[in-house]
Write a protein that binds this DNA or RNA. Structure first.
Ligand SMILES: [Mg+2]
Length: 578
DNA sequence: GCGACAG
DNA sequence: ATCTTGTCGC
């Protein structure tokens, strides 16, 4: 019976909430259009237990403000106010604003208050009300909702899956509403539950008016909420699959992009010709700095790399064959449908044509390590921002950063990432070599695999061979190849990688070592996958990547990721403002 | 036979 | 790759 009641509540609240949100969004959107850069916010205040007990129930009130800098919050309803403001999708709690919760939270006993709108813990309710209220009003920061924070979230608001949005938010809202209702009864002293206990040899009397019920309901809500947050992605995926299934019967054009098989043949040919120039051994003019520690597992890596150089077996199980260019029975294209691979790399220093970046570098010590990444816009598939960052090897400080808004022409097709991302990255590398040659990277870490690839030639190899710069491939998720599956690799990594710097070779069914799973950080339990790009051995690459692993992602790639995303956000703002 | 599949 | 909330520890 109780779940049914809960279910009805969720549905009712969702309906009201959705209507409210749509109306609100339309109003704000219309109001913002002529104003331009001035922001707007709608503020809804709901009292919490402390405020209600101190001032009596004030109910909910809505105030519209055009000048956002003068918005003030009442009492300790701060968190609830914050919650409402956020769920409206209008402002986002950023790091600078986050100081409303003092970092030294242990200083007061009031740290037990539930920030999610649930009821505060009983022990802190009555004695800390005045101090807490004073603190709150005293440091009540005017919450500024500036236009550049507000505008980029409007499209997201519309594109957020409505079912997920409703369930997700309504569960939290239910807790807030129940809290409010119960607080109303508290204000009128409807009923009380009294508990006496002894602490510090002193009799304490606590009064919990309906708090227990409120607590139970809120806990149930929080339970469902956490359940939903955990499995939200899977729900979303299932929903997408269902929708695409339902849609495909009607339209048929949804989901993955169609692969032009003629282009795929051309791409495979290009990969094969470029792979002839690939160098998988150390072939660099500079030396590794002494502070870059070589990893312990080095001998195993070297042995595995050397033994399996002439694999001609077929990787993958697809029936597609490229003999004579006949795409016989392949209705669907697959990245693992490959020609027999000849993974014979060229001998080191086979051609000197790639040396234009290193004329004056002979004998120096490695100093500048680059990282590249591209961020995308979901609403506009062709809009993207490519970024190149150069990080100093010893200080890990950013020496050079460059972003460029680019237009993507090719879709993402597994196995052919290079044909989507390489042009933008090459132009960035060309630009730094031309305009700031002293800052040009000596190595580039690429957000994508190198050798670890269904055809043995991933994005990092491609970029390295085309530009001639030594590259390292760093993957965040595993790319299935040669009988290695993500589940097994993750499980083994969890078992084997215990200390930072631990790595183990990814040896496939054929015995070839495709790369290493590396645990860069003490805290990151899932590894990154380092593979050879160009002109660097696997051992050197892994040691270098580990040296930059302040976080799970090595610093150059991480910075490029962050900066490209931020640049794209700014670009979206300027686009929307004009 | 079908699904998996870096960013 | 993209969307999102929320918590925790250094
Ligand atoms: Mg990337």
């Amino acid at each position: 019976m109780y779940p049914a009641v809960l279910h009805v509540c969720i549905i009712v609240v969702s309906l009201i909430y959705s209507v409210f949100l749509v109306a609100l969004a339309m109003v704000v959107k219309a109001a913002l259009a002529p104003v331009g850069s001035a922001g707007g916010a709608l503020i809804v205040t709901i009292p919490t237990a402390a405020a209600a007990a101190a001032d009596g129930p004030t109910g909910t009130g809505a105030q519209g403000r055009s000048d956002t800098t003068s918005a003030a919050m009442s009492g300790s309803g701060r968190w609830n106010w914050f919650r409402l403001c956020f769920t409206c999708g209008f402002c986002r709690r950023n790091k600078k604003n986050g100081r409303d919760q003092p970092p030294g939270g242990g200083g007061g006993g009031g740290g037990g208050a539930d920030p999610r709108g649930g009821p505060p813990l009983p022990a802190t309710a009555s004695p800390s009300i005045p101090r807490r209220a004073r603190e709150t009003t005293g440091e009540a920061q005017p919450v500024s909702v500036s236009a550049d924070k507000l505008l980029p979230y409007m499209p997201c608001f519309w594109s957020y899956p409505s079912l997920v949005f409703l369930i997700h938010e309504s569960l939290q809202w239910l807790a807030v509403i129940v809290n409010t209702i119960v607080m109303f009864f508290i204000g009128s002293e409807f009923s009380c539950l009294k508990i006496h206990c002894v602490t510090d040899r002193k009799l304490q009397k606590y009064t919990f008016p309906l708090h227990i019920l409120c607590l139970i309901i809120a806990l149930v809500c929080m339970y469902f909420h956490s359940l939903f947050v955990n499995y939200g992605k899977q729900f979303q995926k299932a929903g997408d699959r269902f929708l695409s299934l339902a849609g495909s019967s009607g339209t048929g054009a949804s989901g993955k992009p169609e692969v032009d098989e003629g282009a795929a043949v051309m791409w495979e040919l290009e990969q094969d010709t470029l792979r002839a120039r690939l160098v998988t051994k150390d072939d660099v003019p500079w030396r590794l700095p002494p502070y870059v520690r070589r990893l312990d597992a080095s001998p195993a890596l070297q042995e595995g790399m050397d033994t399996e150089l002439d694999i001609t077996r077929r990787v993958g199980t697809s029936s597609w064959s490229c003999s004579e260019g006949t795409m016989s029975k392949a209705s669907k294209w697959s990245p693992h449908s490959t020609c027999p691979i000849n993974l014979l790399p060229a001998s080191a220093s086979s051609d000197g044509s790639c040396q234009q970046f290193f004329v004056a570098e002979v004998g120096t010590i490695l100093e500048r390590v680059g990282g590249v990444d591209i961020s995308f816009d979901k609403s506009d598939g062709s809009l993207a921002c490519a970024s190149l960052v150069v990080v100093h090897a010893q200080t890990l400080k950013v020496m050079y950063a460059d972003c460029a808004i680019v237009e993507m022409t090719q879709p993402y097709i597994p196995g052919f990432l290079a044909f989507r991302e390489c042009p933008a990255l090459i132009s960035l590398l060309d630009r730094v070599a031309e305009e700031h040659p002293a800052l040009a990277p000596q190595v580039v870490m690429v957000d994508g695999n190198g050798i670890l690839h269904s055809r043995g030639f991933g994005l990092a190899c491609h970029l390295g061979v085309v530009t001639g710069i030594p590259t390292i491939g760093v993957g965040k998720t595993f790319f299935h190849v040669d009988g290695l599956t993500e589940n097994r690799v993750k499980r083994d990594s969890l078992r084997m990688l215990t200390a930072p710097g631990d790595c183990w070779p990814l040896k496939g069914q054929s015995g070839r070592v495709w790369g290493v799973a590396l645990r860069g950080n003490k805290d990151s339990k899932n590894p990154i996958f380092v593979s050879v790009g160009h002109r660097l051995s696997l051992e050197t690459a892994a040691a270098l990547v580990h040296h930059f692993c302040q976080h799970r992602i090595p610093e150059p790639i991480r910075q490029a990721d962050i900066r490209s995303r931020e640049h794209l956000r700014q670009h979206r703002v300027t686009l929307l403002q004009q």
